[in-house]
Design a protein around this nucleic acid. Structure first.
Lengths: 150, 150
DNA sequence: TGTAATCGTTCGCATAGCTAATTAGCATTG
DNA sequence: CAATGCTAATTAGCTATGCGAACGATTACA
């Protein structure tokens, strides 16, 4: 019998493995978009034109952070901003053609590392991971509802 | 039948959910040690006195980052450094009594958020997460071997 | 019309990571 | 035993990602 015969999820291990996996993903970023930019861009793509406030909510970051992320994406030519005609306070962002192109390309590159590693696991492990994806998303969604599936 | 009838792990979703969970964990840090400090401290605790280089390797960060992390931990009185008597280049770090105390306390506090969220999931979800912990760790360990189980 | 609230931004701060270059100590070898 | 070269750790400087507080502009409302 394996080391995890316990019924309850080992919270500390789950927490640490998440931190470390995120770190690894960040490290092997190399070329392309950074995780935050990728995440935001994917969200903008899926949720259509978004106000900055909506993006902040759905990405669960603060308004200042959103401003900076969008500024970066705009500077890269991946999103465009349009002023709301009826409400002078709000700005909407949408993905440009170039943005969508790069989204796909960058996603490919980023998935590669993970896919490579997955390739070295047993099919039991893969089945366990596959089964865990949705629960993990629910973990994130417990209080809120965002999910972009970039 | 649920939306994931596919046999292969959905790489993109797994990748994004990891990034976002890590972000959430960082956000709700509040008091106590930051994730990086907690991770490093746990590693030092488990792996006994470590050289900085060894710590860098097992934590998978660059030497300069290790230097800064250890400096912070030392400044907080959570670790102590001792010069190697036989090799003047190396320094070893060990967890202090206070460090071990705070490690436990901080771990408790940090687990809380995750535990709360886990409490709102179905037992099927919990079983799936429980089963995924070790595969996730193996994902991390594929190329290397660190694991501290803080 | 004047006061609220809302939206986005600017500013200053902290964490977390990197690479490149440097300093110090050790080892090897001619 | 001195030059050479390797290894350990640090310093310096950069990028990214996040926060909160304070602010200007705009809208909504009493």
């Amino acid at each position: 019998m394996g080391p995890s015969t316990k019924r309850r999820v080992d919270v500390a291990r789950l927490r640490l493995v998440i931190v470390r996996l995120a770190r690894r993903q960040r490290q092997q970023a190399g070329t392309g978009l950074t995780p935050s930019l990728q995440s935001a861009l994917a969200m903008i793509d899926v949720r259509g034109p978004l106000t900055l406030g909506a993006l902040a909510t759905v990405e669960q970051v603060s308004p200042p952070t959103t401003t900076r992320i969008v500024a970066k994406l705009e500077e890269m030519g991946l999103v465009s901003r349009t002023a709301d005609p009826t409400d002078g306070r709000v700005t909407r962002v949408a993905v440009t053609t170039e943005g969508r192109r790069q989204l796909v390309e960058s996603r490919e590159r980023r998935d590669e590392w993970l896919r490579d590693r997955l390739g070295e696991l047993s099919s039991d492990d893969l089945a366990a991971l596959d089964a865990a994806v949705e629960p993990l998303e629910r973990l994130l969604a417990v209080t809120d509802e965002p999910r972009a599936d970039a």
